[in-house]
Nucleic acid binder design. Structure first.
Lengths: 196, 196
DNA sequence: CGTCTATTTGAATGTACTCAAAAGCGGTGG
DNA sequence: CCACCGCTTTTGAGTACATTCAAATAGACG
């Protein structure tokens, strides 16, 4: 079980350029973790201590409401970060569950190592600012879509935006992401077929 | 029409400490702007070039969907920032309208001045990082509330969280923020009264 | 092969919306 | 000062979108 940093280095290189020493220092701060299908990386009530970058596999982030219903907030395929950003930022107990939908390998950077990294290699400040900004942009986007689109429009958007996920994910998970019941998604798909 | 920086300085002081020179430099980068009731600070399609800090009055940020319906994303009473964060970050045309609900006075910091400020007084990096993080946290919160609570729960939360706004805002605006019609909000309030 | 979970289908229900009309409220001009 | 106008809020009846519950079917996995 050894670390393969190729993907995350490629990801970092899209935003900032590193010398080989900086790169090695960065790698030295990372931890490798395997999460089997159905296992959790994080549960409600825990303080989120790491950002997790997905190397292989697939994760989901979701909440459970007071009636016990799950609501998927995001999926994380390879090349994406996941965690409870709110809890990571505030270091207070969070509300998110992060669970593997397949056997998954993640690379983790602890919050304390992130701070060390930013101190020693200040250009990482820029990198993490960009990450936070991207999260913010996509969170806004998700919110405006949720309030202004019908279930059908949200589904069609999802299919266009994440064609891979539509193939691989159980319908149940997609329905939860869209904010509808699996039954209704099933009916919607049938009526979309008839329309064509 | 002169700038009164007391409120914004108090706000900044909650996160970072400034010397008097730093404070004066900060103030020199700010612009003052008056927005009359119903006037716009920003419209869909424009690139957001400033963060706006509300000194007096009240603003709303909203989108208009493809069917012409408005969806209020946030309100900004005195002491709050408002703008199209996504557009401000990406410097691409945004989707938000920002409109004054009352005669309003804002203090603006342009994105370019923000960069100047962070270069000359690096501790402002921290300040703006905190602002961005706070936006992210509240955007996540808004999203989880939207997907996991009923309209009634969202209304009661809103009343608890923003008792001032419940007093002053037209119901129509509150309904739009909650993601329901004004008619339905009216009926909901009546049924809440009967319950007590 | 059998069990467990996911998906589909149908009928009944509920939540929130549309449309229309009436009532309330605030500002403005005569 | 009050009468009128425009906008917001309330109310009601009918409707639509999405849910719940139950049952049948299909898939996945040991």
């Amino acid at each position: 079980m050894t670390l393969d940093p190729a993907l995350i280095l490629h990801h970092v290189a899209m935003h900032i350029s590193l010398s080989s020493e900086e790169r090695d220092f960065f790698i030295s701060l990372l931890q490798y973790k395997s999460v089997n299908r159905r296992q959790f990386l994080l549960k409600e009530g825990e303080v989120c201590k790491h950002s997790s970058f997905v190397n292989q596999g697939l994760l989901r982030g979701y909440t459970i409401d007071t009636n016990g219903f799950e609501h998927v907030l995001n999926f994380a395929p390879p090349g994406w970060w996941i965690g409870d950003m709110a809890s990571l930022i505030t270091q207070k107990p969070g509300v998110l569950y992060v669970q593997a939908l397949e056997d998954t390998k993640v690379i983790q950077l602890s919050k304390s190592n992130q701070e060390v990294l930013c101190t020693r290699v200040p250009k990482f400040e820029r990198f993490f600012r960009i990450l936070t900004e991207n999260s913010l942009v996509s969170s806004y986007r998700r919110l405006t879509d949720t309030v202004s689109l019908t279930a059908e429009e949200r589904y069609l958007n999802f299919c266009r935006k994440y064609p891979m996920l539509v193939q691989t994910l159980p319908q149940k998970q997609i329905a939860s992401y869209l904010g509808i019941t699996p039954e209704f998604l099933s009916k919607m798909k049938r009526s979309l077929l008839k329309k064509k």
